[in-house]
Amino acid sequence: MNSPLLKLFTRPSDAWMEIRRAEEDHPQQYLPRLLALALIPALCLMVGTTTFGWSLAAEERV
């Protein structure tokens, strides 16, 4: 399986057709990426609240 990156610069319309075809043939390969992207907001919330806390009023930190 070769990467369509070079084709994106030389022949973009053909490259996008190839990418869409690969996605239709193997949709399960995108599930791990989708799950990883879905975890980003939850991880940011956890790191932000454990590192900096949150404030409900003025300068009170919880």
Rank of each mutant, 00 (worst) to 15 (best):
E18D: 14
E60S: 06
T49Q: 09
T50H: 11
Y30A: 06
W54H: 14
I40M: 15
M46N: 06
L56D: 05
L8T: 04
A58I: 01
L8Y: 05
W54N: 05
E23V: 03
A58M: 03
S55M: 09
W54Y: 15
H26V: 06
A42E: 07
S55P: 00
W54D: 01
S55W: 02
T51C: 11
W16M: 11
H26M: 09
A36Y: 01
V47H: 09
N2Q: 14
F9D: 01
E23F: 04
L45K: 13
P32K: 03
T10D: 00
L34N: 07
E60W: 06
L56E: 04
L6F: 08
A36P: 01
C44M: 11
L6C: 02
T51L: 14
T49G: 01
R33M: 13
A57T: 07
G53Y: 08
T49A: 02
R61M: 07
L31W: 12
T51M: 14
M1V: 07
I19D: 00
L43F: 15
L37S: 06
L45T: 14
L5H: 11
R11A: 12
Y30R: 08
A57R: 08
R11D: 12
E23R: 02
T49W: 12
A42K: 03
M1W: 06
Q29F: 11
W16I: 15
L39M: 15
I40W: 05
W16K: 05
K7C: 01
L34P: 00
A15P: 03
P12G: 02
G48R: 09
T51V: 15
C44Q: 12
A58N: 12
A22G: 04
Q28S: 13
L34A: 07
R11F: 01
Y30Q: 13
S13F: 14
N2F: 06
A58K: 02
A58C: 03
F52K: 07
E23L: 08
T50M: 13
V47N: 09
M46E: 09
R61H: 09
P32Q: 10
P41M: 10
P32A: 08
G53H: 08
Y30W: 13
P32N: 10
P27Y: 03
E60T: 02
S55G: 00
P12K: 11
T10E: 03
L8A: 04
D14Q: 15
A57N: 04
E23T: 07
A42Q: 06
S55C: 04
L34M: 10
R21D: 02
A42R: 01
C44N: 10
S13P: 00
L43V: 15
L43D: 00
D14W: 09
P12F: 10
R61C: 04
L31P: 00
R20S: 14
R21F: 07
P27A: 01
T49K: 12
P41V: 13
L34I: 07
P41Q: 10
A22F: 01
L5R: 14
A38L: 15
L45C: 11
S3A: 11
F9K: 12
L5N: 09
Q28N: 08
E18M: 11
D14T: 10
L43N: 06
P12C: 04
A58H: 04
K7T: 07
R11Y: 02
L56H: 00
V62C: 03
D14P: 00
G53D: 02
E18S: 12
M17L: 15
E18I: 06
L37H: 11
M46C: 06
L56G: 07
P12D: 04
E18P: 00
N2H: 09
S3T: 12
R21L: 11
V47W: 10
L56W: 05
H26C: 05
P4H: 09
